[in-house]
Design a binder for these strands. Structure first.
Lengths: 250, 250
DNA sequence: CGTATCCTTGAAGGACTTCAAATGTTGTGG
DNA sequence: CCACAACATTTGAAGTCCTTCAAGGATACG
């Protein structure tokens, strides 16, 4: 990728590139997609349960997450999202949102109307397949989380989540060395993995003591990748990354 | 639906009907889809983790489930499937299976080649949308399970699962009165909800004692639908059923 | 530099698991 | 149609992983 091609479309193209080999023509079509760009603060809802969106939200910069609110004020976080993701792409074919989407950090978002998305897909069926594929990978991640919450203890669960996030960020070039910028609190980790904040804290300390990670000031560094993978029984197959993207993970 | 139209395609058409209003032309196209029909015994794997299927499996009769095997022999069940479902439809765009698909009861399956499925979608784009939509609902169910396993206690979790299964079966006409045929063991419930068999047993007894259900000889009867819904905090929105299918649930 | 947020620590309690064994049910072949 | 094996459900008791409650530090940001 040349320098001049770095734009608000770069994260999306990098992401699509992990899903499918793009032609120049397809790359051009994507980067002509009309988009309304907005800057969002931290902790802001983008779409809410019950909404009927007419557009989808491409995350360009920042960090987002999806969650379901319980009756008693607790919540279950069901996914974290990084630049290039379109977390509510499912609204293209599911008219009513069954969960919320919000930011975890100050973010830049590009809103794309369903109409334009449908048009792009009609003109470029292979891109349609890539988008469909993207929503299927989304589902695969839910399945992996199910296995973690249902059958793994807290230590393995947290290790697995960290492996997933690092792998996904590396695949779209968001790492620097062995570090990634992770603007997550321990409370959010807990809400994602079905654990209390207190317990997350104790387990994270254990991961540090075991020499697997250092995590400070929203920067996560993996000191022992093999060890962390082993601890979380992490196998990246379920992310269905194309080989070149997996290779970046080593 | 007239009597003469009852065929091996009926479950699929009933299912697609919960997703989208079908035209007669689309109905005809679906029922001309070439299909290799096979009868399967109970407890038989249909597709395994690591496989690269070239066909998808339509469940015509019986009961199926998807699961991931852990290193230590335990497993996490991630979904249950009823006639009309195509549990491995995702293989259409995800080349490698990241989980297993098997039968829970003697079943009749129709195997449809990816090639024919792609052909159908090309000729009838609206059906393609319906299939995409189906995989999105699949994902919505995973999210609902995530919330259950992550944040609900055993009592609510089991109640929620029973509500979901009854609702889905009713939507395609598989109920009889307040009863459905559920060929699930308590062990399988446990493997799906992240609970031990022993604990499932105790909680099911509680549900019975509370007058919500009777469950015997693989037949589940709901005695107090409102009570069961309340116990599981069940809201069917996430199943994204069309109104007519939801109405059948009352 | 103060205040809100996040991280950390200790202690007590609870939901669920594990182990072990008895009882009940279903299907099969003699 | 009974006998028996295989499987599923049920019960009891002990233990554990994780939660909850409570409070003290550290860190970040205006």
């Amino acid at each position: 990728m040349t320098l001049e091609s770095v734009s608000i479309y770069s994260p999306l193209i990098a992401k699509l590139d992990t899903l499918m080999q793009l032609t120049d023509e397809e790359r051009r079509a994507v980067s002509e997609l009309p988009m309304m760009v907005r800057d969002l603060r931290e902790d802001q809802d983008i779409v809410r349960e019950g909404d009927r969106p007419t557009q989808a939200c491409l995350l360009i910069e920042g960090f987002a997450y999806r969650y379901q609110a319980m009756g008693d004020g607790r919540r279950q976080i069901m996914s974290f999202h990084i630049p290039g993701d379109i977390p509510d792409l499912l609204s293209l074919h599911l008219s009513v949102m069954d969960h919320n989407l919000g930011t975890l950090a100050p973010s830049k978002c590009g809103f794309i109307s369903h109409q334009n998305l449908h048009g792009l897909i009609r003109a470029h069926p292979r891109l349609g397949d890539a988008f469909w594929r993207d929503t299927l990978v989304d589902g695969a991640v839910f399945r992996a989380w199910l296995t973690g919450i249902g059958r793994r203890n807290a230590y393995a669960r947290i290790a697995h989540l960290l492996c997933e996030l690092v792998t996904r960020m590396r695949a779209v070039g968001l790492q620097s060395g062995n570090s990634v910028r992770l603007p997550l609190t321990q409370e959010e980790i807990g809400d994602a993995l079905g654990l209390s904040t207190v317990h997350v804290n104790r387990v994270v300390q254990q991961l540090r003591a075991d020499g697997l990670i250092t995590w400070h000031a929203k920067v996560l560094t993996v000191n022992d990748w093999e060890g962390l993978k082993r601890a979380g029984e992490f196998d990246p197959t379920y992310l269905h990354l194309r080989n070149h993207a997996l290779a970046a993970v080593a």
